[in-house]
Design a protein around this nucleic acid. Sequence first.
DNA 1: CGGATTTGACCTGCGC
DNA 2: GCGCAGGTCAAATCCG
Length: 312
Amino acid sequence: MDTSSWVDTSLDLNPSSARPLRLEQTPKKESNGNLIVFGKKLSVKEETCNLEEELNRVNAENKKLAETLTAMCEKYNALRNQVMDLMSKSREKEISPSKKRKSENSDNNNNNDKNYNFGIIGNSESSSSDEDSCKKPREEIIKAKVSRVSVRTEASNTGLIVKDGYQWRKYGQKVTRDNPSPRAYFRCSFAPSCPVKKKVQRSADDQSVVVATYEGEHNHLPPSQMESTSGPSHGSSSLNPSRATMSLGLTKSNPSGGGEARNISSNKPEMDSAQVRQYLVEQMATSLTKDPNFTAALAAAISGRMSSAKSN
DNA sequence: CGGATTTGACCTGCGC
DNA sequence: GCGCAGGTCAAATCCG
């Protein structure tokens, strides 16, 4: 089947390309301020009316597209979860049960080698391995979700900053054996009430890719949401890698951004929450559609879903 | 001055 | 048991 081409064409979410505003229909303006439409002169009042009409139409179109995008994002999340399920299943088959120093370590290497191109690396339960649960029963039972997010950063950006909407406190840095670049260890600044940790390290293969590994789930809203919105609009406050990627997309368009968690609210203080939301949606769509790996991964997921639907 | 970051020391798990 | 490597601690330092 030809899912990839379908994805390529249908998922062109880039606002600039997906939304021709038909401004060419706007009547031409004459030097005296009047307009010529179909050979007829229009007054300034009529021009204002036309512009307002156009504005309303564009606003409605914008709203519709934003809704479409939101729905698409939800579908994307569902598909992503399926992809992660499939990937974790196939990984379980690949990994031999012996010669593993640490399950997390080799898992990490696998991901670095194979998966970082997807942007979102995984959202797998680390405690699913039988071996782990046997050797480290106490820790692994307690251990919460582990998810990985990879970010392509500006070449000039040498720091290990991954913007995901939360505030982090660095508590350590270590140079690991298999990677010349140091690994930074962060704790959620809401600790100890929030148990989430994150490890950030540049990919050994591609120095422009930063891999962030999240452990645990936040039990609070991100500071950016606490500040800018009166109430939570998201269904869950748990860590959502897709949202992390959304924020990360902003780093591309705002390479001069400052501290990680304060990025959105501090850079756009004049925006209301609706504008922020729309801005985020547009940025996410742009960053996603620019990434050929995302469309490829999505195509694979869709084809997998289709084939499974056929078999059912 | 208080909070965040840095960095060397220490702890712990794992393989040999 | 020893050595190695990843992870964490905590004192020193930095910064607003």
